[in-house]
């Protein structure tokens, strides 16, 4: 057995005592680029869940900075080894920022949703808007992509997980793109609200 796998299973299994797992599969927003691991929204979300009585939930941060939707399926295959109940799919920002073809991003996301559903893992789709500077045509198409997917696969949908965060310097790092600690708290709120009744 390859050592990493060995370690991984040890790590995941130690957590799996009568526990339910929520995986957040995302990019730098999820990873918490620039903030400490505890301050990234998945960790904040877990705290919120615990505070609201849902102590059985563990939130796994599977965020990879710079990742695109193309990595969705392969990463799911990996992280689903921990047998999660649900996955928040929060990919696509990098596709948009890099100006990738929307049709391709949509295809990749669809594959990921299909895979998760095939594995009987509940999917929550985290949607994103592109900043206006990318042009109305592109941003509209991008927004529509999530809506189409949500409708098609009938998944729980958060239209814009950066709602109230994006564009506000107060909630972002100096780079203007990545949320700061306060921003992550709002994202966690956004997600928490959307999850109500789902978990």
């Amino acid at each position: 057995m390859r050592p990493f796998l060995f370690l991984l299973i040890l790590a995941f299994s130690s957590l799996s005592f009568a526990q339910k797992k929520l995986v957040v599969l995302g990019d730098s927003l999820t990873e918490g680029y620039g903030v400490a691991k505890d301050a990234a929204f998945p960790a904040v979300l877990e705290k919120k869940l615990h505070e609201s009585g849902k102590k059985e939930w563990t939130v796994i941060n599977a965020g990879v900075s710079g990742s695109t939707t193309a990595s969705g399926v392969s990463r799911m295959k990996w992280v689903f080894k921990s047998k999660p109940e649900a996955v928040i799919l929060a990919l696509g920002a990098n596709d948009g920022l890099r100006g990738l073809k929307i049709a391709d991003s949509e295809k990749h996301l669809a594959q990921a949703i299909e895979y998760a559903q095939g594995q009987k893992v509940k999917v929550i789709l985290g949607g994103l808007y592109m900043p206006p500077n990318y042009g109305k045509a592109y941003t509209d198409q991008f927004k529509k992509m999530y809506e189409t997917l949500a409708k098609k696969y009938k998944v729980t949908f958060i239209p814009f997980i950066l709602d109230k965060v994006a564009g506000n310097p107060k909630y972002n790092l100096a780079d203007g793109i990545h949320p700061n600690e306060e921003g992550h708290k709002i994202i966690a709120d956004n997600v928490f609200t959307a999850l109500k009744g789902v978990l």
Binding site: P131, P132, G167
Partner: peptide
């Protein structure tokens, strides 16, 4: 262009 408005990322 209408590209720079609230929420736009620019430097």
């Amino acid at each position: 262009s209408g590209l720079l408005q609230y929420g736009s990322t620019f430097s």
